[in-house]
Design a protein around this nucleic acid. Structure first.
Lengths: 225, 225
DNA sequence: TAAAAAATAAGGGTTTTTCCTTATTTAAAA
DNA sequence: TTTTAAATAAGGAAAAACCCTTATTTTTTA
C-alpha cells in the first residue's frame, strides 16, 4: 500500500446542522485520508462557498433543503463544476427520486438509515471508481425500466415521470391551500391549463387526488415543511 | 470539581441509522461522562430493548418514526418508566408539536439544526437540573399561551389544539386518497360525522382545505412518508 | 340520577375538484 | 417552410369537498 499524496476533499450540504456535524464526525473517524473542507446549509449556500480554488472532490448532498434543493443543486453543479462528484445522502427512498437523481448524473445514492460502514465504502468507491452502485440503486433502476416497458404510453426510453419546470411550479403551489383558480392567477395561466397540468400529473404519477399531489411533492422534496 | 462516580447513561431513538451513529459519535466526543447504552429504530424497538436492568438516564427521542412515533413513545414511557428523562431531537419546529411534547412531560426539545454545543448543554442541563429550557421553547410556549387568551372558545387553560384519538385517526386517513365517504366507512361513522371532524380540525388548526390537513399530519409526524 | 359535555348524525346548499373531449397557439424539428 | 410536437385553453358535466345549522345519542360529571 503506497502513500496517498493528497487528501480526498469533501463538502457536506444538508440543512440540519446536527446531522452535518454528526456526519463530519463519522468521516473524521474514517481516518486522515478524508478532509471535509466546508459545509453548506443548502444549494444556495454551496454556490457562494464553492470556487475553483476551493472545490472538493466529492459533495455529499441532501435533497430536501430550503432555498435550493438537491435537484437544482446537481443541475447547477453539472454545468458549473462538472468534475465534482456528487453522492446523495437523503432520507427519501422513492424510486422516482432515486432514478431522477441518477439521471442527473449523481455518482451514488445513500439513504440516511445505512450503516456508517456503507458511508466509507461509498466514499472510497466514488473516489476510486467514480461511482457507487448498490443493490438498492440497481433495484430501483430495474423496477423503473420494467415499468417503462409495460407500454403505458410513457415508456420507450425517455423519462416517464420526469416533470418539467412548469409542472414542478404548479406542483409546489398545489401543495398549498390555494384554489386551482388562485394558482392559475399566480402562474398567469388559464384555470383550464391548470386543469390540464393536474390531469397530466395524476396520470404520470398515478395519483388520484390533490392530497396525493401534495404528498408526492413533500415526499420528493419539492416543498419543505 | 469532584469525581463522577457513574456515567450518565443515554439511549438514542431515531429511525435513521446514519443520524443515530453521527449523534453517538458527537456524544462520544463530549467525553467519558456519557455512555450510549443502546440505540433503537423507533418506539416499538425501544419497548423491547428497555428493561429495569437496562434503563438509561436520558432518552434522546425523535418524533417522526415508523411503527411507533415520539408521542406514543413518550406516553408509554411516562407510565412504564416515569424516571427516565426524555430529550426530543427532531426536525419538527411547529409550535403545536413542541407544546404537545412539553405537555406530555419531555424535559427538553432540540431541533436537528442546532450546534453540537447545544447538545452537550442540553444533556448536562437535563441530567443536572432535570430540564433544558431554551428561548426556542419559551417562545413557543408563550405564543401558545397568548393564543389561548384570545377568547376563541378553545382557550381557558386546557389544550386548544390537542387532538383526541378519533380526530387523529381521521386525520391519518384524510392524509390519503380516500374520499371522505370512504373514510367514514373505514371508521364506521356517518359521512356527516366525518364532516364534523373535518370542520373541527379546520377551526382548531386554522386550516382551510384537505391539503392543509394532509400537510399538517405530515409536519407533525402523524403519518410517515 | 339529572345536568352538562362530547360524540355522532342529518338537512340542504355552495364551491371546488375532478374528468372527458376538443381547439388554439407556440416552439421545435425536418 | 411545412410537419410535429408541446404548451395553453375551452365547454360541459358529475363527483367530491366545503360550510352552516340543528338534532340525537352517548359519556362524564356534579
Amino acid at each position: 500500500m503506497f502513500h496517498q499524496h493528497q487528501k480526498i476533499k469533501l463538502a457536506l450540504v444538508d440543512d440540519h446542522k446536527l446531522f452535518r456535524k454528526g456526519l463530519k464526525s463519522l468521516i473524521d473517524m474514517l481516518g486522515p485520508q478524508y478532509e471535509v473542507i466546508f459545509e453548506a446549509n443548502n444549494g444556495k449556500d454551496l454556490q457562494s462557498l464553492l470556487t475553483p480554488d476551493n472545490s472538493p472532490d466529492i459533495i455529499l448532498l441532501d435533497i430536501n433543503m430550503p432555498e435550493m434543493d438537491g435537484f437544482s443543486t446537481v443541475k447547477w453543479l453539472s454545468t458549473h463544476f462538472p468534475l465534482i462528484k456528487t453522492l446523495v445522502v437523503s432520507m427519501v427512498e422513492k424510486e422516482e427520486t432515486v432514478v431522477s437523481m441518477l439521471k442527473l448524473g449523481v455518482k451514488g445514492y445513500l439513504c440516511k438509515d445505512v450503516e456508517p460502514k456503507e458511508l466509507s465504502e461509498a466514499l472510497n468507491s466514488v473516489y476510486n471508481k467514480g461511482f457507487y452502485y448498490t443493490d438498492f440503486i440497481t433495484g430501483k433502476l430495474l423496477h423503473a425500466i420494467q415499468q417503462d416497458n409495460n407500454g403505458d404510453g410513457y415508456g420507450n426510453g425517455n423519462q416517464s415521470y420526469q416533470l418539467n419546470e412548469r409542472e414542478r411550479d404548479f406542483l409546489k403551489l398545489a401543495c398549498s391551500e390555494l384554489t386551482y383558480n388562485e394558482i392559475a392567477l399566480q402562474m398567469s395561466l388559464s384555470p383550464k391549463t391548470i386543469d390540464g397540468y393536474r390531469n397530466a400529473l395524476f396520470e404520470k404519477l398515478n395519483i388520484k387526488s390533490r392530497v396525493g399531489l401534495a404528498l408526492y411533492a413533500v415526499k420528493n422534496g419539492l416543498v419543505h415543511l
